[in-house]
Amino acid sequence: MLYAASLLPALVIFALFLVGKFPRWLMATYVGSFILCAIGWELWISYGLVDGLDVASRRPQAMNEVIPMHINWVLNSLGDAAAVGLAGVFLVWLAYGRTNSAFMAWRWGAFAILSAWFIAQNLFVEMYVYQQQLAEGFRLSWAPLMPTGPWYNPTLLNFDGRSVQLQTQLPWVLMTPIYYYLLLRCYKKWGVQTRDGV
């Protein structure tokens, strides 16, 4: 699932970009968000860089064989950039009447849509996709977008025997304004000539 969610969109995006069917401003947003996710948290929690366990210590050996630790952060960052970031752009585009008006200037409605999407998907991922790797008892590294680190990490909610913790929710809470700012900058620089349609 991780390979499909990470590599397939990346291949489609780059193929469309090469044939001129994927806007330059969206490509810049995609690449920028990949970098932000990688340095914001994925590298740190994959390797356990600051007082945390690396991903190989937090998951079953079968998973380690299928997804080696050294590419884990790449796959997760690619998935974050496409399945989360670009999906959020699409939701905003739909909500604003299939126009790029929300990418020309800051719109609180667009920010709210991105925020709701980023947090909702992250809750789902933490509770149902990566619960075993993120459960209480596994220390995750400090990261720039996980500033409380493992030292202050209260449980925010429990549901159906699954927990949600502060540390793992912070990246997408903090990423929302950063991502929207990136999106606006990329559109201003490369997309202003494309007023309608993504």
Score class of each variant (00 low, 15 high):
M1H: 08
M1T: 10
M1Y: 03
Y3M: 08
A4E: 03
A5D: 06
A5E: 01
S6G: 12
L7W: 01
L7K: 04
L11M: 14
L11K: 06
V12C: 04
V12Y: 10
A15L: 13
F17L: 05
L18R: 15
L18F: 03
F22V: 10
P23C: 00
R24N: 09
A28M: 15
Y30R: 03
F34R: 03
I35A: 11
C37R: 05
A38D: 00
I39W: 15
G40H: 07
G40W: 04
E42M: 15
L43P: 03
L43A: 11
I45D: 00
S46H: 04
Y47G: 02
V50A: 09
L53Y: 07
R58L: 11
R58M: 13
R59Q: 04
R59I: 02
P60S: 05
Q61L: 09
H70R: 14
H70D: 09
W73T: 04
W73D: 02
S77D: 00
G79W: 08
A81P: 13
A83C: 14
G85Q: 13
G85H: 10
L86M: 13
G88F: 01
G88W: 02
V89R: 02
W93K: 04
L94V: 14
A95P: 01
R98F: 15
R98V: 02
S101Y: 03
S101L: 13
A102T: 08
W106T: 01
W108A: 12
W108H: 14
G109H: 12
G109S: 11
A112S: 11
A112L: 08
I113C: 08
L114G: 05
W117S: 15
I119W: 10
N122T: 11
M127A: 13
Y130A: 13
Y130D: 09
Q132Y: 11
L134Y: 12
F138G: 03
W142Q: 02
A143D: 02
P144M: 06
L145P: 04
L145N: 11
L145A: 05
M146R: 15
M146Q: 10
G149R: 11
G149V: 12
G149D: 07
P150S: 06
Y152T: 01
T155A: 12
L157W: 02
N158F: 10
S163D: 05
V164I: 14
T168S: 15
T168W: 11
Q169H: 13
Q169F: 14
L174T: 11
I178L: 15
Y180T: 01
Y181F: 14
Y181P: 02
L182G: 00
L182N: 00
L183S: 14
L184M: 06
R185E: 09
C186G: 03
C186N: 10
C186Y: 04
Y187H: 05
Y187E: 00
W190V: 06
D196G: 10
G197W: 03
